[in-house]
Simulated scan of single mutants.
Amino acid sequence: MAEFPIMSNFERDFVIQVVLVDTEDTMDQVAAKCAYHSINRRVHPQPENVLRVRRHEDGKLFPRNMTVSDAELRPTETLDIIFMDN
C-alpha cells in the first residue's frame, strides 16, 4: 500500500485536481475520493448514476474492481471520472 497521485478530471468540473489515492484502491474507491473534491462543490450530485473511471489519454474504461496498481498508471496521470447509467 502506497500513496499515489493522480490528476482528477471530474465530469462537469472546470478544475483538474491532484488527488492522492492508494495503490490498492479499486477504481470505485478512486472515483469516490475524486468525487469528494468535486461533488457538492462545483458539481451537482447524480445519485441515480454510478461513477466510473477512464484513462484520459485513450478513453479506456477501467473495471470497477480493478486496483490502481493493476491499472499500471503513471504518477500524476489524468483520469476522467464520469457519470454512467446504472
Rank of each mutant, 00 (worst) to 15 (best):
D25Y: 08
D22S: 15
N40E: 14
H44I: 09
V18L: 12
P63N: 09
T78E: 06
R52H: 13
S69D: 10
G59D: 04
M84N: 08
R54K: 15
L79G: 02
S8L: 07
L79V: 04
E48I: 09
D22E: 13
I39Y: 04
D70N: 08
Q17R: 15
R52N: 08
N49S: 14
N49R: 15
L51G: 00
C34A: 15
N9Y: 06
E24V: 10
K33P: 03
S38V: 10
A35T: 08
E72H: 12
L51T: 02
E11S: 06
D28A: 11
S69Q: 09
Y36V: 13
C34V: 06
I16Q: 13
T26I: 03
N40Y: 08
T67P: 02
D80L: 06
T23S: 13
P45F: 07
T26Q: 00
D80N: 14
I16V: 15
E48R: 14
V68M: 06
V21Q: 01
H37V: 00
H37G: 00
P75W: 03
P47I: 10
V53T: 05
I82L: 10
T76Q: 10
R55T: 04
I82T: 06
E11M: 14
R41C: 10
L79Y: 01
V15A: 13
R55F: 04
S69F: 03
H44Y: 12
E72W: 06
L61P: 05
H37D: 04
L73G: 02
D13C: 14
L20T: 09
D25C: 11
E24F: 07
F83I: 07
I39L: 13
R41G: 06
Q29T: 02
F83T: 09
L61G: 05
F14Q: 14
F83A: 09
C34E: 05
L79R: 05
R74G: 03
F62L: 07
F14C: 13
T76I: 08
F10Q: 02
D58Y: 08
S38K: 08
E57R: 12
V18R: 15
D80A: 04
E57I: 11
D25T: 04
Y36L: 14
T78P: 02
E72C: 10
F62Y: 14
V43E: 06
V15W: 09
T78M: 11
L79N: 01
R55S: 04
V19S: 01
L61I: 14
D28Q: 11
V43R: 03
I82H: 01
I16L: 11
V53W: 00
R55D: 04
R52Q: 14
E57W: 06
M66D: 02
R42K: 15
D13R: 08
T23R: 12
P45V: 08
R52G: 05
